[in-house]
Computed example of a mutant assay.
Amino acid sequence: MFGVDGFSLRPREAVGISMTAEGLRLVRLAAPEERDGVWTVTASSGAACSCDGADVASLAAATCAALDSLGWMHLPLGLALPAELAMTAEREFPAALTGAELQAALLWAMRAEADREGSTLPADLRLCCAPMETDANTHRYWTAAMEEPRVQAYFSAFSARGLRLRRLTICPPDGGTLAPLIAAAREPQMPWEELEEHPGECTAIYAGLLVPKPSSSLSWQAEHCIFPRLRRRAPELTAGAATLFFAVAVSADAAGLMAERTATETVQEELRLHDADVRRMEEYAMRRAAVAERERALAEVQAESLPLCALLVHLGTLPLKGIQLTALRAGQMLEIEGEAESYEALATMTEQIAEDGFFRAPPVLAEVSREDGYIRFVLRTDGVGL
């Protein structure tokens, strides 16, 4: 059921679970060695469940009963909740973002929208996000947000039933970036087998495929406590530690003798190569000074570029319909160049920028001309209020 991957155990089997109008859909997946570790659906089953996803305790009880009847209680689980249980949305940014930077930008955008609407977001939101199809100028991301206590309630309820819930997620439209893996997992293993369509199966496969993956923004995971596991493994850990200490004690004397001999030979060699060492130290000092200078210059560039990054993210959140920004220059004055489909679109954009309060002074329309059917413009201001 498990395969060794470095120093960690990577599961070879998993169960994905989704919720449908008929109840639960449970899909068992495996990554057999004969298929080069490609995850494949080995079994799919439905189970009755009269509760909705918001009733955590009832959902855990129904899942436990279904897994027990199938003999899958020992397998790690991935659970995909219905999208209506979380705050979901699609957002666009002008630059590609990943990891913590992406989550910070999404939270910033959500809180900015809430402030404009006069509402307040919970302080303990946890995000589940996935990249969507993008083009050269726009990067789209799908986001699901849920409060931290709610997320942990699912892991606690399943753990209380003895279930190994490893990943909690909400499936993005069409499976997001895992769509090719979902299609590969559903392919018939034999030529005579026919592909059967079951409601919620693709969503369950999506949840199951996240179980063996490292932690990522595609899913939520529980906050693990290692001490109960250490207590269960205390005899093995104690025996291993004793063996290690014994081996260290036995080899200490031999290692000491070898170290003394090596030290003596090293001192003799150092005496012969003293002049060469001095030259190497001088060269090292010069290189270290050069590296320090480069790091200082890089830090200055990064510090100067922070307002520009904030401006790019801010402009990416504005609904600039009929507007395409083509250039951005920051110096003593900030200039924004672009093309507008009409004067009405240009006027709407300048009003939005002037009203959002991001700039210290509202941008002024410095230049405007019509070329090739588009209205080319230049907005100018003295900087941003960061």
Rank of each mutant, 00 (worst) to 15 (best):
R167H: 08
A242V: 03
V267H: 14
Y284L: 07
M258P: 11
L168H: 13
A247L: 11
L195I: 14
A179L: 07
S215Y: 02
A234H: 04
R167N: 07
P180V: 00
R261N: 15
E236D: 10
L273G: 04
K213F: 02
F246Y: 07
L257K: 14
Q221K: 03
A252M: 00
R186M: 01
D253L: 14
C202H: 14
R294L: 15
A263F: 04
H198I: 15
T238R: 15
L298C: 14
E223S: 13
S216E: 00
M258I: 12
V301T: 11
P235K: 08
P172G: 13
L209Q: 06
L271M: 03
E201H: 15
E196T: 14
G176I: 00
T264C: 09
Q189P: 00
I205G: 11
A263S: 13
P228E: 09
P172W: 09
A185W: 00
A241R: 01
Q302H: 14
G208L: 04
A303K: 08
G162Y: 06
M281A: 12
M190F: 04
T243L: 15
Q268S: 08
R287F: 00
A290S: 12
V211Q: 05
P173F: 07
I170V: 15
Q221E: 11
R166T: 11
H224G: 09
A239I: 07
L168A: 13
A285L: 10
A263M: 12
W220E: 02
A276M: 00
R231T: 11
E201V: 06
I170Y: 02
A263D: 14
